[in-house]
């Protein structure tokens, strides 16, 4: 099996290496480049923990070969943290913190990148669009409640208002003419 040379721009920096064709992009990022924010949570392209942006679009880096990313640009969560590498100025990561959109943190880098990609494609998100847009990212800790809020905040929405609208649309569907209870 012949190795292949790849040139991949990762978080704005050019990287190059001779790699086995079977090397997964996720492992290229983690092992070859030492960028370990990107996690691998399954082997069936189900969980989305490994989500990164490839030329600006969300992909699951466990199901992309490094050779497929040759000559392309990859953004990982580290790439949102500014030159210093520790900036939370990014609207998505800032919203995840403010809304407590993470607990154990394992799904977080993938969630953050999925949300980043989602907003890039559709800045006018509502709760349903966020939930459906994140169908490929699993989280075991948060029940998604605060992840959805974080995505709405990052998209410039008021999460309380959006959740109320969604709850009322459920109520309208399930109980026409009935205004759902107050909740809190």
């Amino acid at each position: 099996m012949t190795n292949v040379k790849v040139d991949i721009t990762v978080n704005g920096r050019t990287t190059t290496d001779d790699v086995e064709p079977r090397l997964l992009l996720a492992h290229y990022l983690r092992e070859n480049l030492g960028l370990k924010a990107t996690n691998i949570g399954c082997d069936t392209t189900s969980c989305g923990a490994c989500t990164v942006l490839l030329d600006g679009e969300s992909v699951k880096s466990c199901t992309v070969l490094a050779v497929q990313a040759d000559q392309l640009a990859v953004t990982t969560m580290e790439g949102l943290a500014g030159e210093s590498g520790d900036s939370l100025d990014n609207p998505v990561t800032a919203a995840f913190r403010a809304e407590h959109g993470l607990q154990c943190g394992f799904c977080t880098p993938g969630m953050v990148m999925a949300v980043t990609g989602l907003i890039a494609e559709n800045p006018d998100l509502d709760e349903r669009a966020v939930r459906e847009g994140l169908e490929g990212n699993l989280c075991r800790c948060t029940g998604y409640h605060n992840i959805v809020r974080a995505a709405l905040v990052a998209a410039g929405k008021d999460p309380d208002a959006e959740q109320e609208i969604e709850a009322e649309s459920d109520a309208a569907r399930t109980a026409p003419g009935f205004s759902a209870g107050s909740g809190s």
């Binding site: 392209t45 989305g48 989500t51 490839l54 679009e57 969300s58 992909v59 699951k60 199901t63 992309v64 999925a114 990609g117 989602l118 494609e121 847009g133 169908e135 490929g136 990212n137």
Partner: peptide
């Protein structure tokens, strides 16, 4: 089909 990430590929 799949999810947004899958549809991008």
């Amino acid at each position: 089909v799949g999810d947004p990430q899958v549809r991008h590929r």
